[in-house]
Design a protein around this nucleic acid. Structure first.
Length: 598
RNA sequence: GGUCCCGUAGCUCAGUUGGAUAGAGCAACAGCCUUCUAAGCUGUGGGUCACACGUUCGAAUCGUGUCGGGAUCACCA
């Protein structure tokens, strides 16, 4: 049990035995004591003062005395400052936390809780390569999935590939017209980039045709529909839906190229999926749902045969769920897929990691499921994340400011190398310079993408964030590399010195930085729990940074191998063992590896 | 126009179930490597928490309004 929970329990127990009144943990606050005051944790008395009709000083003294007497193994002493009861936790408690956990690789993880949750976190279109926005989505979803696993959930990571539609037909048409049979192999191009290039080519050709038509006096809007290449694309989409063998064959071939490319990128960033859905399989789903909805009178059919749902009672609009020609829209597919996920896996929770531009769509989806009486409607959760912008504003494909994922990763790796070489210049004996070339290369591949992940995950998911290219490749300060470096420093000590088994702490008192470290480590299970409850990897990123920072202060202040006494050495080695483990574990939650040396 | 989100140091961000003097990093400046990795540490300067009013013993945090920025409201996906 965590110290915070101990305090909550002891305080409610104390209030009952002192005043005969019943309180719950929600009736008062327990905070970590702010620096400059004596103590580790603080009980805020004001809320209790009111109910008990006692002055803060009187209540604080009674409560403080009680805690010190009834729980001497937990509390050493207390002070009262202006309504704040500051508790100093007994060293023995911190020692016990340390000694019971310092070799526990699973520290902070929870046992299976029997709940099953699906996290859908990637929905690429197959007409172009992944970009920076996809990275935030992927990192976030993957991390949330890992955090949930650590908290005892069974997690199914899923991906929905938008492999059909007008977008991929555009690339196909352009390839037919301009490629002369070229392939990724023949041109030495990564498959997704290869197909993306033809998507660009399509837009160029289309723009040219539109301009030509506009020059003849046609309105631009009409010209965009009438451009021959556009008409050919629309025809191709119809052919695809009819299953035209030639079109299907080309479609499979080009998607295949894209998947090869995606696979490389996913492998590089460590994204993996337990289940991949393809829109070409799911786009017809939901048709029965429409019938069912009509029967239940949740949907209404209009004279032109289109089907709608009226959500105005919930402050939304009327939404179309089936076109007049009987084909289903995006929303209908989504209802069908939601049902399928539930049917196939019996999930308790269905999380969608999707950008906040789709907040409205997701709200509607959930509401429709609710209206239809779907049992899982309340278990749909939209993990909405903010857009990634550049210092100059949004990324715009038209202006060519979209940051390509592969390029970015290359840049990060290259920069990791540059930094390493710079930092180790003139130090032939440094750990880095003693590595083999292959070891160095592996290190760059850990640091570069790790920096990228940390940069994107340390910000609260729901907030729009700015991606500053110069700042993102920094390796100092509040960065992934800083934490990786800290881990390497700790491991460096632990390679040289081993903790002696069976050691029992002597009479010595914990020094402030030793206390701070153990106290922060003790909070790890709570941090993991909170991160899961809020679906927020950023809280872990912030926590592990705080840990690393505390250690680095400790490191310059205190020696481990040559500590003042053998007792201190044994103590500190154990702190470092737990610390290295928690750093590694925290970073693993973010999908970032930590090196032995760097 | 309707709905929703956001506004904290020059920049990027923490802090928001209401609690003590609002914190980090970057950038700037000044120090620290004969001692376990200086990708590090220590210090200095930097704030009308967009603004106003309200609720409260107490507001960056809650409420109302104003201003500024963004998203969305397709028989697109």
């Amino acid at each position: 049990m965590s110290m915070i929970k101990h305090i909550q329990q002891c305080v409610t127990g104390g209030l009952t035995s002192l005043f005969g009144e019943t309180f719950t943990a929600a009736d008062f606050q327990v905070n970590t004591t702010v620096a400059d005051f004596e103590g580790d944790y603080t009980v805020v008395l004001f809320a209790l003062v009111k109910k008990l009709r006692l002055s803060p000083d009187v209540l604080g003294t009674k409560l403080g005395d009680y805690l010190a007497e009834a729980h001497p193994q937990l509390f050493k002493e207390y002070t009262i400052v202006k309504g704040f009861l500051n508790l100093s936790v007994a060293d023995a408690y911190w020692m016990e936390v340390l000694l019971t956990n310092y070799t526990n690789a699973d520290f902070g993880r929870q046992l299976p809780n029997g709940k099953k949750v699906m996290v859908e976190y990637s929905s690429p279109n197959t007409n172009k390569p992944l970009h920076l926005g996809h990275l935030r989505n992927n990192f976030l979803g993957w991390s949330v999935a890992e955090i949930l696993k650590a908290n005892g959930y069974e997690v199914i990571k899923s991906c929905i590939v938008n492999d059909r539609g007008i977008h991929i037909c555009k690339s196909m048409i352009a390839w037919q017209r301009y490629a002369n049979g070229a392939t990724p192999e023949s041109t030495g191009t990564k498959g997704d980039h290869f197909v993306g290039d033809y998507y660009v080519k399509f837009n160029e050709a289309c723009t040219a045709e539109v301009n030509e038509l506009v020059a003849t006096g046609m309105a631009k809007e009409l010209a965009e529909k009438e451009a021959p290449i556009m008409k050919a694309t629309q025809q191709m989409l119809l052919d695809w839906e009819k299953g035209d063998p030639e079109v299907m064959s080309l479609w499979r071939r080009m998607n295949g190229w894209v998947y090869e490319g995606f696979a490389q990128t996913y492998a590089r960033i460590g994204s993996d999926f337990d289940k991949t859905y393809y829109e070409s399989d799911t786009y017809l789903l939901g048709k029965e749902t429409v019938q069912a909805g009509l029967a239940k009178k949740v949907f209404v059919q209009r004279e032109d045969n289109s089907v709608w749902i009226d959500l105005t009672a919930d402050g939304l609009d009327e939404k179309l769920v089936q076109r007049k020609d009987g084909t289903s829209v995006y929303m209908t597919q989504d209802i069908g897929l939601a049902q399928q996920k539930y049917d196939q896996y019996g999930i308790d929770k269905s999380i969608y990691v999707i950008g906040n531009e789709q907040n409205y769509h997701m709200k509607v989806l959930q509401l429709i499921c609710k209206r239809l009486g779907m049992p899982y409607a309340d278990d749909i959760y939209h993990l909405s994340y903010g857009m990634v912008e550049l210092p100059g504003g949004k990324m715009k494909s038209r202006e060519g400011t979209v940051v390509d994922a592969d390029d970015l990763l290359d840049e990060m790796v290259a920069n990791a190398e540059k930094e390493a070489v710079k930092n180790n210049a003139g130090k032939p004996e440094s750990e880095f310079n003693k590595m083999t070339r292959a070891e160095q290369q592996a290190l760059f591949n850990m640091i570069g993408p790790g920096a990228m992940k940390y940069y994107l995950l340390k910000v609260d998911p729901k907030k729009t964030m700015v991606f500053n290219p110069e700042e993102s490749i920094e390796f100092t300060g509040f960065t992934g590399a800083y934490i990786q470096y800290t881990h390497a420093r700790i491991r460096s000590i632990l390679r040289r010195e081993a903790a002696t088994p069976g050691w029992q702490p002597g009479a010595g008192v914990l020094l402030p930085l030793e206390r701070s470290l153990i106290m922060a480590l003790e909070q790890y299970p709570f941090v993991l729990e909170q991160a899961a409850a809020e679906y927020n990897p950023a809280s872990i990123a912030n926590y592990v940074y705080h840990l690393a920072k505390t250690f680095n202060s400790f490191y310059t202040e205190h020696a481990v191998a040559s500590a003042e006494t053998e007792d201190k050495k044994q103590l500190r080695l154990r702190i470092l063992m737990l610390l290295a483990n928690v750093i590694r574990s925290s970073m693993a939650m973010l999908g970032i590896g930590v090196p032995e040396r760097m």
